[in-house]
């Protein structure tokens, strides 16, 4: 395992991987890559590699978990044993169970859950390679998987983290910055409705720093949102062009 670095931000103000404090990692998103799932998405954010798949809506199994007035969302966040430096046991850890819940609750407000009573939708998130900020990247990908499955939604959900590293507020923490740095603020929100669906904080921040971090994370989310929309449209853009010919 790599040594703890001495400086997370160098004299010129650049971070370990050469980014500026308010810069995102390079992101690549693809939609509809798993043919067996009703909807799917794949995201690469820096060194993170995450697959998300959605199944449904279908009848709930076991049946007693279904609700008479709404659809039930189920979510499983799982890290592959090879996703981290030290082999991770494939059994769901305490952390994964919690993240599954957190991700589900951040996606739920975006779905028209009341349209389909007594049904369920399953979301599976598989982290193939982790490098900090996987919950945020997972939310971004899972939301796309839901849209790809044709489930009616109020808006796509985007997530991004900000944090504090060596007394500077920075955007989109990577693994080392998350572990060595002093605070991490993951935030998920729906840009068109301007509604926050997830806000967590781990570490110590002054009220001013916290506000700065939230605003920075929101800016980051908006940047990812354009990429997210682009990825969803790419699959269908050819259709639009050919439709135009018809006019």
């Amino acid at each position: 395992m790599s040594e703890k670095p001495e400086k997370l931000i160098d004299k010129k103000g650049f971070r370990l991987d050469g980014r500026k404090p308010d810069e995102l990692r390079p992101i690549k998103i693809e939609v509809g890559i798993l043919s067996n799932a009703d909807g799917s998405a794949y995201i690469e954010q820096g060194k993170n590699k995450i697959l998300a798949a959605a199944f449904g809506p279908k009848e709930m199994h076991p049946k007693h978990l279904s609700l008479p007035d709404r659809m039930v969302l189920r979510c499983r966040y799982h890290m592959a044993p090879f996703s981290v430096q030290e082999r991770k046991s494939p059994a769901p850890s305490r952390r994964e169970v919690e993240l599954s819940k957190v991700i589900r609750e951040s996606l739920e407000p975006s779905v028209f859950v009341e349209y389909y009573p007594r049904t369920g939708v399953d979301i599976f998130i598989e982290v193939l390679q982790a490098d900090g900020g996987t919950r945020c990247a997972s939310i971004t990908a899972a939301s796309l998987a839901l849209a790809d499955a044709g489930i009616p939604m109020r808006d796509l959900v985007v997530a991004c983290a900000a944090g504090k590293v060596e007394n500077t507020v920075v955007l989109d923490l990577m693994d080392t910055e998350d572990k060595v740095g002093s605070a991490d603020v993951p935030l998920a929100f729906m840009p068109n409705l301007n509604a926050v669906t997830l806000l967590q904080m781990d570490g110590i921040l002054t009220p001013e720093e916290f506000e700065k971090a939230v605003n920075l994370a929101m800016e980051g989310c908006k940047k990812i949102y354009t990429l997210q929309k682009e990825a969803l449209k790419t699959k269908y853009i050819a259709i639009q062009q050919e439709e135009e010919v018809e006019e």
Binding site: A147, R154, D155, L156, N192, L232, K233, E244
Partner: peptide, 12 residues
């Protein structure tokens, strides 16, 4: 525009 591809949440 007519027949434009829109994503969930897009203001129409």
């Amino acid at each position: 525009e007519k027949k434009q591809v829109v994503t969930p949440g897009e203001l129409l």
